[in-house]
Design a protein around this nucleic acid. Structure first.
Lengths: 207, 207
DNA sequence: TTTTGTTTTTAAACAGTGTTCAATTATTTT
DNA sequence: AAAATAATTGAACACTGTTTAAAAACAAAA
C-alpha cells in the first residue's frame, strides 16, 4: 500500500512547510506579532487548515523550540574531543555565545521568551531532554573540573547555574537591547569582551 | 486662578489612577494579556478616554518602566554608607537580586521585556538616565575596586558588564522559568546559592 | 464507473484585541 | 443664560486565535 505512505509523506511535507513559514515569520517579526493568518498567507492555505496539523499556535512554537536545542547540541558535539575539562568549559561558553549571537531570535525563542513553558514541561516529550542535555553537559564538565582540582571550595550545582547565568546574562542583555548603557564605542564588542573577562576569571580559579 | 490648578490636579489624579490600574493588571496578568479595555473597566471609564491621558499602550508601559528604576535606585541609596568598594559591590548584587525576586514582573518590565526600547531611547527623557545611573553606579564601584588593588589585569567596562550579566542572568533565568533544568530540590534556592558562589569568586579575586 | 467513506480544505463566525473619531455630556468662561 | 472649551463616550475599523459546519478532494469498494 504505497498510497497511504505517500499520503503520509504529503501530510508531513505540508506540516514542514507550515513550520518553515512559521519560523521565517517568528524570526522576522517575533512570535506575538505573527498571526496564524500570516502563516496561512505565506503557504497559500486557509487559516483553519493549519489547525489540522497543529493543535494551536503554541504547538508550532514548541516544534521550533525543539529544533533550536538540536542545533545547539550539534554544535556542542565537537567538545567530546576536548579532554581538558577547563578547556572544554571555556570552549563551551564560546560556542554558546556564538550560537546566541548568530541566531538571536532562535536563542530568544529558546531561553528568553516566556510563551509556552507550561506546555514544554507538561508534554513529557523526548526532545526537551535536549534542553536538560545542554545543562547536564555543563554540569558534567564542571564536575570533571572539580575532580581535576579546580574550583576548590565551590559546589557543583550552584556553580554550574552561575556559569550558565553569566553567559546567558550577557547574550540576553544584548539580544533584548539593554547594552545601550555601556560605553557607545564598546557596545559592538562588549559581549565578547565580557566573555574574555569571564575566561580570565575562570583561569585564576584553576589553581 | 486656583481653578486651573485644581483641574490640572484632577487630570493628574486620573492619570495616576490609570497608571495604578495598569500596574496592577500588568503585574497580575502580564503586559500582553492586559487590554486597554481591562484597564478601563478597572477604573470605570470607557476605553477611549484612556487615550486622552496616554498616547498608546506603550506610553503606559513606559511610565511604569521609569517608576521601576526609581524604586531600584532608592534601594541602592543605602550603599553610599558602605566605604569598602568590594563590600559595596557585593551588597549591590544582593540588593539587585532581592529587588528582582521580590518584584519579578517589574524586573521583567525593566530588563527583559522587549516592548518599547525604541521609545525609551528616542524620547531623551530624564528618567531613563536612572537606568544609566544604576550601571554607572556599578562601574564606579568597580573602578574603586580596581583602584584599591582588586581585579588586577581586568578591564573596567567589560568587567562591569560581566558582573551585571551574572546577576541579571540568574534572576532572568528564574523569572522566565528556565530553572527547571537544575536539580529539583535546589530550584528554590539556586539563585541565592549561585549569588554566593559568585561572591566567593569575587573574594578570591580580591588579592 | 459509480457509489461510499474518509481526509483535507475552506469560509464564516465568535469573542477578543489596540486604536480612532464623531457625537455627546460636563464644566468653565464670557 | 449663552458660548466656548474640555472630558467622555460608544460605535466603528482592522486586526487577533480558534472553532465549526459545509464543501471539496480523493481512495477504495461495488
Amino acid at each position: 500500500m504505497g498510497i497511504a505512505e505517500r499520503k503520509e509523506r504529503d501530510k508531513e511535507e505540508l506540516r514542514e512547510r507550515i513550520l518553515v513559514a512559521a519560523k521565517t515569520l517568528f524570526l522576522e517579526k517575533g512570535v506575538e506579532k505573527t498571526s496564524i493568518r500570516n502563516i496561512a498567507d505565506l503557504i497559500e492555505y486557509s487559516p483553519g487548515s493549519i489547525y489540522h496539523y497543529f493543535k494551536d499556535k503554541n504547538e508550532i512554537f514548541h516544534a521550533l523550540h525543539q529544533g533550536g536545542f538540536q542545533q545547539l547540541m550539534s554544535r556542542m558535539e565537537v567538545l567530546v574531543a576536548v579532554s581538558n575539562p577547563m578547556e572544554r568549559l571555556k570552549r563551551m561558553g564560546a560556542i554558546y555565545v556564538d550560537f546566541a549571537l548568530e541566531n538571536p531570535d532562535m536563542y530568544d525563542l529558546m531561553f528568553i521568551k516566556e510563551a509556552p513553558m507550561d506546555h514544554v514541561f507538561k508534554s513529557n516529550d523526548e526532545q526537551w531532554k535536549e534542553g536538560f542535555g545542554t545543562f547536564n553537559f555543563l554540569r558534567t564538565t564542571i564536575q570533571e573540573c572539580i575532580q581535576a582540582g579546580h574550583f576548590r571550595g565551590h559546589e557543583e550545582e550552584a556553580l554550574s547555574f552561575m556559569v550558565w547565568s553569566t553567559v546567558h546574562g550577557m547574550v540576553s542583555l544584548r539580544i533584548r537591547r539593554r547594552c545601550e548603557v555601556v560605553l557607545a564605542q564598546r557596545q559592538d564588542t562588549i559581549v565578547k569582551d565580557g566573555l574574555h573577562e569571564f575566561f580570565s576569571i575562570l583561569d585564576r580559579l584553576s589553581s
